[in-house]
Design a protein around this nucleic acid. Sequence first.
DNA 1: TATGAATGAGCTTTCATTCAT
DNA 2: GATGAATGAAAGCTCATTCAT
Lengths: 205, 205, 205, 205
Amino acid sequence: MGGIRARRKAERPGEILEAAFEEFVLKGFAATRLEDVAARAGVTKGTIYFYFESKETLFASTVRELSKPTHAALAEEESDRSADIQAYLQAYLNRLYRFIVDDQRSREILRLLIAEAGRFPELVDEHCRACMDPVIERLRVRLQDETAHGRIRPVSLPEAAEVVLGPALALNILLLMFANRRPLDAEKFIAAHLDLVLHGLLPGS
Amino acid sequence: MGGIRARRKAERPGEILEAAFEEFVLKGFAATRLEDVAARAGVTKGTIYFYFESKETLFASTVRELSKPTHAALAEEESDRSADIQAYLQAYLNRLYRFIVDDQRSREILRLLIAEAGRFPELVDEHCRACMDPVIERLRVRLQDETAHGRIRPVSLPEAAEVVLGPALALNILLLMFANRRPLDAEKFIAAHLDLVLHGLLPGS
Amino acid sequence: MGGIRARRKAERPGEILEAAFEEFVLKGFAATRLEDVAARAGVTKGTIYFYFESKETLFASTVRELSKPTHAALAEEESDRSADIQAYLQAYLNRLYRFIVDDQRSREILRLLIAEAGRFPELVDEHCRACMDPVIERLRVRLQDETAHGRIRPVSLPEAAEVVLGPALALNILLLMFANRRPLDAEKFIAAHLDLVLHGLLPGS
Amino acid sequence: MGGIRARRKAERPGEILEAAFEEFVLKGFAATRLEDVAARAGVTKGTIYFYFESKETLFASTVRELSKPTHAALAEEESDRSADIQAYLQAYLNRLYRFIVDDQRSREILRLLIAEAGRFPELVDEHCRACMDPVIERLRVRLQDETAHGRIRPVSLPEAAEVVLGPALALNILLLMFANRRPLDAEKFIAAHLDLVLHGLLPGS
DNA sequence: TATGAATGAGCTTTCATTCAT
DNA sequence: GATGAATGAAAGCTCATTCAT
């Protein structure tokens, strides 16, 4: 008594969030039917309302809850802070791209946020504060440090950090828009990104 | 013959598309009510169906029709093909950013396409073929030519072209997501973009 | 001038009625769209309203106008009134069945009347007065005459006349209901009808 | 447990079908408003869709469900199979006419089927297989048997069976078309039917 | 005469939400 | 806790009808 049953109960909200996420990703906020979410979670419509106030609350909870792993992962200290900027950037970008290329879930969260930015502005802000800002900020700090020591050319900050990360966000968007309909060689893209960011286009400038 | 009525008639579809665009941008596809579109266009619901088959058709027509000016503008030959790569890129990026920073309409079209990519994949493809591909392609050709003459470092194509343009797309997305809630110094971003792309981070590499 | 054009004009109402009939038969009163009628008649919706007050008027006019040929044909004196009852009945039923078996149009009019009897009761009455009553009445008169002269068994009138004609109406209905989905050997049916009506089931009774 | 709510719940679909039937009979399929059905059943529009997929499904279910009593009654063995053909036919036709004359409901079902035969052909077929065919078939078998033993004149089958039943179907239609606007002496009609079928018109033929 | 753009009431259908059980 | 029958407020869409041209 209270064994598997209790565990199932405790997992209910999580199962509903999983189901909701899949449906929201598939159809968007407005076109998602709570009935489908319920069916996918193996409960009934009423149960959703036991755990969540409304469809909007469910959406917000879904985004918040399912971005947590990404937040956590992005928050981890990257391996080698003492490496030179070249090695650092390489590791940094590689890590970032893992989320973009391999983690469809975090990509879909971004899509939801872009799509529903009008309806959930505070959610967008929250997500960016938790997820994008630290990533940019850490790069900004590093670039500032490198500049101060004259190890890289002087750059305008924080814009340069945003520019450096720009292509990653762009790839994210391209992958979202074309699903699998267009060939995008992610590995070559990443290599080209690193190369360009380090050396620029001009030879020995 | 052809008095005020005829003039109004000829303008009806355009007025409806204009109204539809504003509503779609505000609410997204699913949440937009045709009644609101009609009211905004100064007609009744029935009139919309006189000109457009369905809500989906109206959406597709809206995106297609309202992207035409952007397509046309992007298709124009950029001023100075004979300039060196530095001047060329500067002009090229400046032009591109005009669409991104100044033209809210084309930015909103992009948001609609990202948001509804699942429901209108062919529309996404169409728009990219008409709007993004030529821009990338022209840059790719130029970079190839520059590489062939040894005027820039050898780069992997077409990825390098996509990477070069990446920050522009990224800025686009950031502007979309934050509307006016965050300060984004576009001019500095553009300058940093051009600088980075030309010279890279490393000094005199 | 005024040749083919004038003739076309004079034929307009008739062409509309033809088109309306085909649509009403296909879809029934409520489900028929005036726009389809107009298209079939080669005119526009507005033109229908020039000739007919409303959809209901059009329906009534269609039934009235298109039953006229049937009325006329049924009103004609049947060939041989001086023949004996056997020959008379044979000719009589054969004529009647021509309308039922061969004339899909008059069959469809009947369907329309049955289907819309609730909405157009006066139309039903009118049609029956013009189309069914005279047929029954003529038979009733003949049977009365035959009875009076003792040439047939004494029968209850007018019921007997209605019973004699009953199978014809029944075949009409069966053809309506099954379109061509069921095999119905009309010729054998007619022969059996005549045989039964003349001799009954019992042998030499 | 299972209080008033549970009892009502179990009866809901039946109440809706009952209400739907009355509306369909009154207005026909296309002109019936689901709102009226709901109001008549004492529920709201939404409730109908909880139990039935669509208006078409509701119509088909209505016809199917409400014909069941008739099917069942017609399927019962008629009382006296050992009686001679005359007594048998009398009992047989009397039973049949009970459905036609007394049972307005089954008459209205027939009207619905004739009216909507174009839209619901499979429903027509189904109804006839369940409702008309067995009646005809039983008579055919009996007539065949009688013929084999020489107890009735040789007749062409199955046409003769259909002809024998024809006047009953015809009366059905007449009652449908004229509601109560015309005097139709059903009892005399039935008597005349039986008399004619047994003896025919000709004396001592 | 004839057109066809425009209307607007009304249709079927959907679905977030509630609440008695 | 959980259910699911029921609601009711829309939503998308249709179409008979009108009327300026």
